[in-house]
Write a protein that binds this DNA or RNA. Structure first.
Lengths: 266, 266
DNA sequence: TCAATAGTGTCTCTTAGACACTATGAA
DNA sequence: TTCATAGTGTCTAAGAGACACTATTGA
């Protein structure tokens, strides 16, 4: 008998003990901007549990599907092919979070441009937009329909949305994520509007411009917006070279599974 | 027939479709300090796969066990009852990360005081310490045995350790996590040593003291260290009142499942 | 008195907020 | 010319690094 059997032989007889296992799902916070406020896309549940409440789009993770791929698949199914920033947020695993069965869900944040947000609404009629507001920093969030009515979220999804908003607020100023909410070309004013909408505060214009330009993430195009009745602003685009100034990656960081994680650094 | 059956009736007949599911595990980065460097506790694998390599302690999540409870259980089993900072890091779900079967693992970071680190080593003789070094910020990490030999980590555990170190570095200066690596009473010099060890850089003494004291996280005790052959330093302890200055919560944030997550805020 | 470290005063530099100013295009 | 917004110059305030200084203990 060999002191150590070969790895192949070991694997051949390995019997994956099958205890009862939780199911694994992904849930997506599809976040864009609507009328100067953060907005998310929700599905109104018509079945138990939590019938009548609004839930995040999600789906189970296939046995041969990487987590990031499952999130990308749900994003594709709901929002179409438009590429978007997609980032793992946090994993929720309370036992009773879904009364049907034990489901552990890995929450993802997807950032949609205005166009992608509209496209998702058009292609999946079941999706309903809701604007997100946080009473205080790190406080609970509330979600409202566009006509002002408060929406009740299913399961622990309000918690997930709160984590999403906190994460985005936290890294907005230290990474390039903000660009994911804007079209390819944008003005500095548009970028500032995005930051103000996400942070829920007004920002100082000269300071904001200085910071953004000093970061090295922006590339002036020499082109200008058109159709304004006032002085047109210059159009910028994300810099090709992330530039040495751009670092900081603070969150869980560029994912292991080669996920589409353009920013990241704090 | 009712338009909507009762929730109870629905739940009664709900049949949890059982497709093949990934297994769910937790893996812990048990992190402390050793000789002025970050150090982690590893188990040398004597079985396939990756026999001979070093792995993070972990375990499967029970069907009726919350994620945080599973992490706390593994922590208890390995490091004993000493309370420690425990925080969810990131979830790793590549398909081939474990050749035996599909395992999705939720990585946690546990911070151990010097005493807890030593206690864990004493109570679980299988545990081996390894010092962690990162060649560059956001670069890959390397783990070495105390006698200098490089240790190869099993599975994707090197990636997990890298995420742990990045997370800790990122929030060290904006939260109270640093206290979790120190005993109940400590001097400002000890706190600075902790920060320098984690960050891998030297810090400016007056600036560090100013910052820490201004944060409002520290409470002077009026007591002083003893046994020194030089001027003894005052002993501090974490403030009871987190103080309004202490905010920032940057990471996934205080967990939903009432986990022991003292800091958090980005 | 000396050695060694604790703890502080102060200067400078960087960065953000505030505010007022100039620039530019369309009506 | 006026209006509305783009874009800038400059002052001030807050905070960090640098450096030298004083304070306090045991040997």
């Amino acid at each position: 008998m060999n002191p150590i059997e070969s790895e192949a032989a070991f694997l051949a007889r390995y019997d994956p003990a099958d205890y009862a296992r939780p199911a694994i799902a992904v849930d997506l916070v599809l976040l864009g901007l609507s009328g100067g406020r953060p907005a998310i896309l929700l599905l109104k549940r018509d079945r138990h549990p939590h019938a009548g409440r609004h839930a995040l789009p999600g789906g189970f993770v296939g046995i041969d599907e990487p987590l990031d791929a499952a999130a990308a698949r749900v994003l594709r199914e709901k929002a179409g092919g438009a590429p978007a920033h997609l980032e793992q947020l946090y994993t929720f695993g309370a036992v009773e979070r879904d009364p049907r069965m034990r489901i552990v869900t890995v929450a993802y944040l997807a950032l949609l441009t205005e166009a992608a947000f509209a496209e998702a609404l058009a292609r999946a009629p079941a999706l309903q937009p809701g604007t997100v507001a946080a009473s205080s920093i790190d406080g609970p969030v509330t979600v409202h329909a566009l006509h002002g009515e408060a929406l009740a979220l299913a399961f622990d999804h309000a918690e997930i949305v709160a984590v999403a908003l906190r994460r985005l607020r936290g890294k907005l100023d230290y990474s390039e994520v903000g660009f994911a909410l804007l079209p390819e070309l944008f003005t500095l004013r548009q970028l500032q509007d995005v930051h103000e909408a996400i942070l829920g505060t007004r920002l100082n214009k000269p300071a904001f411009r200085r910071r953004m330009l000093d970061r090295g993430w922006l590339e002036p195009t020499g082109r200008f917006e058109t159709g304004t009745s006032y002085r047109p602003a210059e159009l910028y685009r994300p810099a090709r070279n992330p530039s040495p100034t751009a670092s900081t990656n603070s969150s869980p960081t560029s994912s292991p599974n080669s996920s589409p994680n353009p920013s990241q650094g704090d």
